[in-house]
Design a protein around this nucleic acid. Structure first.
Lengths: 215, 215
DNA sequence: TACTTCTGATGGCGCTTGTCGTCAAATAGT
DNA sequence: ACTATTTGACGACAAGCGCCATCAGAAGTA
């Protein structure tokens, strides 16, 4: 009955790293490997062996941090979406100083499309997470909803008089997010052929026209 | 060296069916099985064995008609999308008699959302086809583009003076399709909780506001 | 009736997968 | 120096996969 513990707390240092540091580094290596593989060959084609080879680690350390490849997908997706949401919020906030609502919308959209010029991130966020499991479906819908709410909030901020029928508000926010995502998705699948400004302008016009009409 | 031919032409009748009839029936059985399984447990979880069990046939007949499960997915997806596109076009054409552009838009949207109240179809068209292979990605983008063009054409028909910068026209069409799809997707993943009319109205407003503003 | 074609059932082949165990070498604590 | 922990390399295992071959019986054909 030997203790086989290798907890974060009981573990000793190795290679100049504490147990916690090693765990964190391994996690990061697997996250990077996940983004790389999920974003290129795709989630369903990615195996544990491949992830380990890409990360330069062995499977024991994968199972120590993640339960599944699905588990890893959840974390890679969440990290990517959260980072992009932060960038968009930051861009909108910075543009607020200009006092021009249109420039604010454009700044947010530009930050969004710029972030998704990383094809791996784009592929994971839009092509790979869909239809994997009910758990991930729920995660996806919640993130889309978040973005929709952000858009609605921004719309209200720009034009306080703007209002829609109760039941259609949420749907409209989601629809706007869908417009942005779909154009970005086609952009990705078309090897980013159009200039980013065209994407920004087309979606900006769509949002502005809705804000102007619905008074 | 026996001839093992069982071509459509050389085959004889069996069970009261000609060789061509049998092939067509088997194909239909596999198409139905494909929609059922792809639309419930998902494409990546579906195996040839399952499809055969669901279709009530054995694998020999699967390989006679399809090369892959991916092959079957392509055909199931194409059939579904084509049928829905036909329904939408028909609904728009029928509403043309009323002479009211708004009613025409609503009729098309209502036909669209009605068709996608079939969760299996919706799941195949939006959650399962994405990120499977470059071949299917290309098929998907082309169908989205088709729908976008249909929308732009309809917009021009309703308001001939409507025009956008060259490069942003296609993108705008895709964005509108994205708005419709995303709201429908969230509808699906939310177990169709909202009334269909809310979806129709929210998207109709979005389209009309764009038509009105862009003059 | 004899012969050929078609069908469903069954099992097997080679391969890949997730997962676990073993073992020698490297490192750290005492 | 001695012991315990950590590491990477390697192999093994059952399970499931696509795919193919075989075989008895049903259904047509002559």
């Amino acid at each position: 009955m030997k203790k086989v513990k290798q907890n974060t707390e009981t573990g000793r240092t190795y290679g100049g790293e504490s147990a916690a540091d090693r765990l964190a580094r391994q996690r990061r290596q697997f996250m990077d490997a996940g983004l790389e593989l999920f974003g290129t060959i795709g989630y369903r084609a990615t195996t544990v062996r491949m992830l380990c080879k890409q990360a330069g680690l062995i499977d024991r350390y994968f199972y120590k941090t993640f339960h599944d490849t699905e588990d890893l997908l959840v974390e890679v997706y969440t990290e990517a979406v959260d980072q992009i949401k932060d960038k968009v919020i930051l861009a909108i906030a910075e543009a607020a100083d200009l006092g021009n609502p249109e420039l604010q919308i454009n700044a947010g959209l530009d930050a969004f499309f710029t972030a998704y010029e990383n094809a791996r991130v784009a592929r994971v966020c839009w092509l790979e997470v869909l239809g994997v499991s009910p758990r991930i479906d729920a995660l996806y819908t919640s993130r889309i909803q978040d973005f929709g709410d952000l858009l609605l909030l921004q719309g209200k901020a720009i034009k306080p008089s703007w209002s829609l029928p109760e039941e259609e508000t949420r749907i409209t926010g989601i629809a706007l997010v869908g417009a942005i995502i779909q154009s970005a998705m086609q952009w990705l699948l078309d090897d980013y052929r159009s200039p980013r400004a065209a994407l920004v302008n087309a979606n900006s016009r769509l949002i502005r026209s809705l804000l102007e009409s619905g008074q």
